[in-house]
Amino acid sequence: MNRLTEFMLPPAKSTTAGEVDALFHFINVTSIILLAGITFTIIYFAWKYRRRSEDDVTPVITHNSKLEITWSVIPLILVMIVFGWGLSGYMNLTTAPDDAYEVRVVAKSWLWEFHYQNGHVSVNELHVPVDRPVKLVMSSDDVIHSFFVPDYRIKRDVLPNRYTSVWFEAIETGESIIHCTEYCGRAHSDMNATVFVHTQEDFETWLESADAIDEDMPPAERGEALVTRSGCMACHSTDGSRMVGPTFQGLWMAERTMEDGEVVTADENYIRESILEPNARINEGYDPVMPSYQGTLSDRQIDDIIEYIKTLD
């Protein structure tokens, strides 16, 4: 039976996952025992009491109070156990410890932004320290999304008009996948991100160097790193193939036709506008679905991305 639970659930990588798994296991085992009993009874009765002749006489059994009370009370006790257990687990999952490290999460169709306390922003990558509670304070810029980390057994909807929060404490370093689990349109199934769990020292090093990694590089390379890190590649290709958004290849100084018939040259101002106000002008044949990067990318970072796009011809 333990094997079944292990097979059905992803590895448990948070402090709270164990309790959820134990309850999952308990309900599964109880259900399987009861289901086996019911199934056996159905098959046994169907065989044992099969019709032998058209004149079979059956006994008149209209009810049996003792039996009926038994099969009402036992399930009632079982579900009350499950209820209490589930409630206590739920309280643990919704009550973040006071000393939790806070990360601000912004969901947009279709990417995740993580804002750290030092002002750093990472896109589609959540970096956290191991063995320390982390509280995520989340909101959405557009429709409802939902933040789900299977390895941590946590999930919470991310709403456009209020903050919701979720917390976890990772118990080992490594990576875990984040899914969006509230249907949010075309690229819903690509709205994934990754949690990177570091040791406390590695995490601090990462946090300090996260913005600095770019400094020694040429602008175009920094731009490339930014494009990868900011989740642009989810919708824009660099090899000319058509995705949700237009490709970056050959974009620089190209003439593009907009939905309203206007022809625009893709210069610095156009690219900057496309990043900060993406729905101001829409390429012909595409939908106005890109979220704004206002507040996510700084002016210097946009310069770097422009340099990078220049190299893609």
């Binding site: 309790e19 959820v20 309850l23 999952f24 309900i27 599964n28 259900s31 009861l34 289901l35 019911i38 199934t39 159905i42 169907a46 579900v79 499950v82 209820f83 257990w85 589930g86 409630l87 206590s88 687990g89 739920y90 643990n92 999952l93 939902s146 789900f148 299977p150 057994r153 946590i154 999930k155 919470r156 689990t181 509230e182």
Partner: peptide
């Protein structure tokens, strides 16, 4: 009889989903 078997599975998995802590993991999957 097929109903009895399948619906019982449906019922038990409903108990699983009704349980708060487990539902958080299983919701929308």
């Amino acid at each position: 009889m097929v109903f009895l078997f399948l619906f019982t599975i449906g019922g038990f998995t409903g108990i699983m989903l009704g349980s708060l802590a487990v539902d958080i993991h299983l919701h929308d999957t």
